[in-house]
Amino acid sequence: MPSLRKTFDLRKTFDLRDESGVLRISIAITVSIAVFGIAFGLLSGSFSILFDGIYSLVDASMSLLALAVVRLIRTYTHEASSAGRRLRERFTVGFWHLEPMVLGLNGILLMGVSAYAFFNAVTLLLDGGRELEFGLAIVYALVTVIACTVAALLEWRANRRIRSDFIRLDVHSWLMSGGITTALLVAFCIGYGVEGTRYAWLSPYVDPAILALVCLVIIPLPIGTVKQALADILLVTPAGLKAHVDSVATAAVARHGLLSFRAYVAKVGRAQQIELYFIVPAEAPARRIGEWDAIRDEIGQAIGPDSPDRWLTIIFTGDREWAD
């Protein structure tokens, strides 16, 4: 019985149908690659392999942080446990705002690590390069490319159903890591091939040159993620969502004899925050609370399906100052 329980727990921990499970798998693979890379980087004398291992460690730390945020959001929005109730009492507006913060921090750190590695690579080139053991380097690069490819495919397939920004960013990170290591593999093969030939003088430059080139390629890649994260943090209104809410509200105004409305819309990570204020004519006949609630339900359904990640507030008032 204990062994069956362990097997069940292991499957639940690394469940590809669950966002947290996918992130746990990613963290486990990333930490393994990081340790593998740092060890082989030191043994082979390759600064680019060492960078690859450190890059993986940074990525793993961000995945751990993302996993913690996912757990907080899920506990807050889905669980009826005492822990969920305590979180809702203490943090009444939820944890969605942490998601773009983590995504932005992840992108900035990855760009910072890459920029630092680039300047170190240039310094090595100016100092005459660096000798390394190409055989060990090739073994590392080949194993890591396979691991990155498998991880990216697993997460991409899982995220077709889950649709998580965290997993999407993680897939991009795996593709970036795989691209880096593929470039290293090609460079190491070239360096191994020129040893003992008249081009042997090039071999010390192979490692820093390919590292500098790879860094130049990957530094701009997280910019899109960072921009979107900043837009979410700054509560920039998504044009498409705002247009849809305005359309629904305009129809409600015409259908129920209201004067006008004010809409406040933002996207914060996976959450949609929508506040709608409808101006009721002063001479309008009184309605029962149930009638107003029915109008709210109607408007909410027209905006879209209800979700734990949607924060929708609909208010009716005769005073325009409450809406402005």
Rank of each mutant, 00 (worst) to 15 (best):
G196M: 08
L142M: 11
F166P: 00
R163C: 07
G179P: 00
A239H: 12
C189Q: 09
F188S: 09
C148D: 09
K242Y: 12
R161T: 12
R163G: 08
R163S: 13
G129P: 01
G193W: 11
C148N: 13
D170G: 01
R130M: 09
Y140M: 03
V145C: 12
W156R: 15
G191D: 03
I233K: 06
L125W: 04
L211P: 00
A239D: 14
I138C: 03
L132W: 05
L126H: 06
G193F: 09
R160K: 14
H244R: 15
I146L: 13
G179F: 09
L213T: 11
K227Q: 11
G128A: 10
A147Q: 02
I146E: 03
A187E: 05
L216V: 12
D127K: 15
W174T: 00
A209G: 05
L153R: 13
A239P: 04
L241M: 15
A229C: 04
G196V: 06
G196D: 05
Q228T: 11
I233A: 13
A243M: 11
G224C: 05
V206K: 01
I218G: 00
E195I: 09
A137L: 02
G179T: 08
H244N: 09
S173Q: 10
L221H: 03
E195Y: 09
I219A: 07
V236G: 08
G240R: 14
L211Y: 02
G240N: 14
A243F: 10
P204F: 09
G191R: 00
E133P: 01
T144V: 12
R163H: 14
A147V: 08
L142T: 13
G224D: 13
E131D: 15
T149G: 10
A239G: 11
A141M: 02
A200I: 00
L169Y: 09
R157C: 07
I190Y: 08
L202W: 01
F134N: 11
I180R: 03
V150T: 04
I218T: 09
A141K: 00
A152H: 04
L126R: 11
K227L: 13
G240K: 12
R198Y: 09
I167W: 11
I190W: 01
E195W: 05
I218Q: 09
A231Y: 12
I138R: 05
R130D: 01
L132I: 10
V236W: 12
L202M: 12
C215M: 15
E155P: 00
A151P: 02
D127E: 15
G191L: 02
W156L: 14
T181M: 04
I219M: 10
L132G: 06
C215F: 06
L169S: 14
L202F: 04
I219S: 06
K227F: 10
V150I: 13
G191T: 03
S164H: 04
D165A: 15
H172M: 14
P238A: 08
A152R: 08
L132D: 04
A187H: 01
I223R: 12
V194A: 07
L124Y: 10
T144Q: 08
R160H: 11
I167T: 07
E131M: 13
Y205E: 05
V186G: 08
E155D: 06
T225A: 15
A137K: 00
F134G: 06
T181D: 04
V186D: 04
L175N: 07
D165L: 15
L216H: 07
G193Y: 06
